[in-house]
């Protein structure tokens, strides 16, 4: 039947400019035994608008990868919920299986994310067959997508993952993610393992595909240069929490949270006459087991005051643009001496 050979297209419900995905107080804790708990993701709120790329940055232990896995529903959240185009993920009108067709993920390790026993085209065709597309139709679709990601099917479709280079494998993974016709693609350090010259090719490809298929990306990376290049908005995470989120240029040019500032000034200068002279932060990022009270960044923050150790700052709008930061210095009347005066704010 012609009907079973293709996947349905999903109509846009909210219209352009509305959030495609809203995460509300997402929380994921991993008990370690002995009472210790890894607070990997702790009450994370964010929204991804249709057609935009949300960059997520942060250091190891900040919870960015766990957030990706929860968003993909590979691990269930402990608390919180997600709305996809206005519908509750896993609810009655948007089942988990249907959600997983509309949201897809590309992993960092291009080799581990392909089954070594399947040919490239079989790997790409697997998803559609799960959703009821006939095998021949899925294979044709797979070849079409391989062409789209720059791999000639005649040369590559029948090959096995170990015969491809890292960059080629990552292209296959992107084709595989697109095979289900998703609207949201989560890229978890998807270009981090590639060589720089190959990384640039894949970034170009991602930009083209976003254009062609009208995709929305969540782009997770530790490379601040890459995030700046590809993202419309950026979310900065620290110890399982969002410390700052906002439009990319505003955030890079005028970071409001002390951690964002530190992270940005830790970037290599690329200027032999103006090298970095001082490290912005001392020590390693702490691990998310039993994180500190109050603001989680306060033990390392150069501006920390009494209020920071006691009261947890919440994400609040700051500055003129659409920026939010979780810092007492940005909130009038917070009790921090650098906070704006109440009259001024009014």
């Amino acid at each position: 039947m012609a009907q079973e050979a293709q996947l349905p297209t999903t109509p846009d419900r909210g219209g352009a400019g509305t959030p495609l995905l809203q995460a509300k107080t997402l929380t994921k804790h991993f008990p370690l035994g002995g009472g210790a708990v890894v607070r990997a993701v702790d009450g994370v709120d964010f929204a991804v608008l249709k057609g935009e790329t949300l960059g997520v940055v942060g250091e190891s232990g900040c919870g960015k990868s766990t957030t990706a896995r929860v968003v993909m529903q590979l691990i269930p959240q402990d608390k919180g919920e997600m709305l996809f185009d206005g519908e509750i993920v896993g609810g009655r009108s948007l089942t988990l299986k249907e959600y997983r067709r509309q949201a897809q993920m590309v992993f960092q390790d291009s080799y581990a994310s392909l089954n070594p026993r399947l040919t490239i085209e079989d790997s790409v065709a697997f998803g559609p067959t799960v959703h009821g597309v006939s095998k021949p139709a899925a294979i044709l679709k797979a070849r079409e997508l391989l062409t789209k990601v720059g791999l000639d099917p005649a040369r590559f479709a029948a090959r096995y993952p170990h015969e491809l280079s890292g960059g080629q494998r990552q292209r296959v993974n992107i084709a595989r993610a697109l095979a289900l016709g998703p609207r949201l693609v989560i890229l978890d350090e998807a270009v981090s393992a590639l060589d720089k010259s190959v990384e640039a090719q894949v970034l170009n490809l991602l930009a083209d595909l976003r254009e062609e298929f009208g995709l929305t990306y969540i782009f997770i990376s530790h490379d601040l240069n890459v995030v700046r290049f590809i993202s419309d908005r950026v979310m900065v995470m620290y110890l399982g929490e969002v410390v700052e989120i906002g439009p990319v240029d505003e955030l890079y040019d005028d970071p409001r949270h002390p951690y964002t500032r530190a992270l940005l000034s830790a970037m290599p200068s690329m200027d032999p006459d103006n090298r970095t002279m001082e490290a912005p932060l001392a020590g390693d990022p702490p691990n998310p087991i039993n994180p500190p009270d109050g603001c989680r960044f306060h033990p390392r923050c150069p501006h920390a005051q009494t209020v920071c150790a006691k009261v947890k700052p919440v994400l609040a709008r700051t500055g003129e643009g659409a920026r939010e930061a979780a810092c007492h210095m940005e909130v009038a009347g917070s009790g921090h001496s650098r906070a704006p005066k109440l009259e001024e704010a009014a």
Partner: peptide
């Protein structure tokens, strides 16, 4: 990851 990816495809 490929098993994760398969699960993410709804299999």
């Amino acid at each position: 990851d490929y098993v994760e990816a398969a699960r993410a495809s709804g299999a």
